[in-house]
Write a protein that binds this DNA or RNA. Structure first.
Lengths: 182, 182
DNA sequence: ATAAGATAGTTGCAAGTGAAACCATTTTGC
DNA sequence: GCAAAATGGTTTCACTTGCAACTATCTTAT
């Protein structure tokens, strides 16, 4: 680890005293630029979590997302559904599903109504892994957010929610219903 | 576009009423799980921005990061510095630098003090591109954050800052100095 | 009833990325 | 002063991923 330039680095980095915007006289301060900060933060947080599901359980992110979706919903659901819901490309989900099937963590049930589609659900083995993994991940999340007060955590959630909503990342049931109705 | 499952999807998604945590009776709600939300949000925001630097200027993210770093700092700096500062792998930076050199958007100056290292700086052409690009990106950022009040934007920045700091993503000058001193 | 279009899911291909090996140079330790 | 370790930067390799093409099935329109 070399310190010299690391030191220089942080000279203007400091703690991004956000709110005042990322620009000053036509220059752009990456450290105050929200898209960059989100990217970096997401990458770092992912890294911090991957030691749980990756190193310990041999799952990668797409595989974890499949399990997370199946674990949260009670009924079996389709690959397509998982892809939309996690906003992950369907080919990525397809590969994750293949791996999980091979490891017998999930299983497929043919859908007689529509033979293109398969319903997926966790096997007993998969559920066991899920039950073991979830508390660990939640603990990690709490560790990461430990620097925030309960109030601040709530605030963060709300702010993220607003941005998600404005980016249409999450559809409220009303919106979905509306679109469905017409 | 299939609506049926999309509709189901949002039933429990709703707007993550954060703060109450992502868990309920041993299940984990991805939509309330901060690591997942950050990932998804970062991906989406990146996508929204890429139309600017990618489609319009043929830059990818690493290349943009190099320019952003060079543009913000007044003096020429090394590839290593850029890598640390943007937390991007050095091989990725190396490739981005190669491309930018070919496009003559940046140039290298040999460092006589240490002949392993090269100082990088923008060419006139690079600076011109930068000056054109930055306002566009800032505008996009504002569009994305338009759903937040000034107060909320400030808050978001502070919250991100706290998490960054706790993850050691940003070193304050004091920390850097301290580590340097010993 | 049938052809045209949509949809679920899989797979081949190309591009991007991180890890590790590598080269050249500089620093460290004895 | 010299061998060993460290550092800046490049390159190779393996892997992941997104896109697009493809198959099979279902829906729609005429």
């Amino acid at each position: 680890m070399e310190r010299t330039s690391q030191k220089r680095l942080s000279r203007e980095a400091g703690i991004a005293s956000a709110g005042e915007g990322a620009s000053r006289r036509g220059r752009l301060d990456l450290f105050k630029f929200v898209p960059f900060r989100l990217n970096r933060l997401a990458a770092e947080v992912s890294m911090a979590l991957s030691s749980e599901y990756e190193a310990r359980y041999g799952l990668d992110i797409p595989e974890w997302r499949v399990l997370a979706t199946l674990g949260f919903r009670k009924e079996a659901c389709s690959a397509q559904y998982i892809a939309q819901c996690t906003r992950t490309h369907k080919s990525t989900i397809s590969r994750a599903v293949t791996t999980l099937l091979e490891r017998e963590l999930i299983e497929r049930v043919a859908n007689t109504d529509d033979r293109r589609e398969f319903r997926l659900r966790m096997t007993r083995k998969g559920k066991a892994l899920y039950d073991e993994l979830v508390p660990r991940l939640l603990r990690r999340e709490q560790e990461i957010l430990a620097c925030l007060s309960a109030q601040e955590r709530r605030m963060l959630g709300q702010l993220l929610g607003k941005i998600e909503q404005s980016l249409d990342l999450i559809q409220t049931s009303e919106e979905a219903d509306a679109k469905d109705a017409y």
